[in-house]
């Protein structure tokens, strides 16, 4: 039985790999046959070589560090603010309804629109990027943790009242543990957003990190290096997603994944 499923997964993986491998091989052959000279395309083998070189001189590693540092710091700040507001709004219906118009007025501002404001207030560098990432991460966490707190089993709240737990302990011992699986889903979502926003800010304006790296490669007409950065950014996005899905499964079991649609 288990042998059979293993065989099935292997078969699925093989089928999944057919298309990308075929495309890569076809592209490599075409590039070699036509002696491709281009500012925007490069043979896959050249891209791999450029990626290896970028690793060898640490340039891509430093860029990765800068991007991930900004993304994760912004994510942490945004999560804390979003979680605090989400729990407060989830617990107090009065507060939630009073803040509704304010939240709905600020939320639709596209995070990237804050870029020029952050630029003149903070200048280039980590800080402006972190602020924009944090702004982008606050909203999903706020909305989803508010929903998570509201859906906590009412009896748990009754217990905490019966125990006369002070407010801080009630939040720490009852609310956060009870809502944690769904809060983690929000966190996973926000981590993806944080990476996207960080790279976008770097591409648009900020001269650090992977986004700046890929822009520089483009401006230097190094198609191979540019595509190497693109592939690497894709790998990081994919790896981040995998790590968070695995963490979620480990921490909360498979049941937590069903909360995805919420």
């Amino acid at each position: 039985m288990s042998d059979n499923t293993a065989k099935n997964t292997a078969k699925h993986t093989a089928k999944a790999l057919v298309l990308p491998v075929a495309l890569l091989v076809a592209f490599e052959v075409w590039a070699r046959a036509t002696h491709l000279q281009s500012d925007s395309l490069a043979a896959p083998s050249d891209v791999v070589r450029a990626l290896a070189e970028a690793f060898a001189d640490f340039s891509i590693l430093i860029a990765t560090r800068d991007t991930l540092f900004s993304a994760f710091t912004g994510l942490a700040i945004g999560s804390i603010i979003g979680l605090a507001l989400g729990i407060a709004f989830g617990l107090s219906n009065t507060l939630n309804r009073l803040m509704e118009v304010t939240v709905e007025a600020i939320r639709p501002i596209p995070s990237i629109a804050l870029l020029p404001i952050a630029l003149i207030a903070l200048g280039f560098g980590y800080r402006m990027e972190i602020v924009i990432v944090a702004f982008a991460c606050v909203w999903p966490i706020l909305i989803l943790s508010r929903a998570a707190v509201r859906s906590i089993e009412p009896r748990l709240m009754e217990v905490s009242r019966a125990l006369r737990l002070p407010a801080a302990q009630r939040v720490w011992k009852i609310i956060i543990p009870a809502a944690l699986p769904r809060i983690f889903v929000a966190f996973r979502l926000s981590a993806g957003i944080a990476l996207i926003v960080a790279v976008t800010v770097e591409i648009a304006i900020n001269p650090i990190g992977l986004g700046a790296g890929i822009m520089l490669a483009q401006q230097a007409l190094r198609a191979d290096l540019m595509l190497a950065y693109l592939v690497w950014i894709g790998v990081i996005g994919y790896a981040l997603n995998i790590v968070l899905v695995v963490a979620q499964r480990r921490l909360f079991g498979r049941a937590a994944l069903s909360g995805d649609s919420a």
Binding site: H12, K15, A16, L19, P20, D39, S40, G192, L195, I196, V199, T200, I203, A204, L210, G211, I214, M215, A217, Q218, L221, A223, M226, L227, Y229, L230, I233, G234, G237, Y238, L240, N241
Partner: peptide, 20 residues
């Protein structure tokens, strides 16, 4: 599966390629 693999790619990373 290929599409799922591409999905977490920050789409803005395609901008330099499009500019080129």
């Amino acid at each position: 599966p290929s599409l799922e693999f591409l999905r977490p790619l920050p789409v803005s990373a395609i901008i330099p390629v499009a500019i080129a």
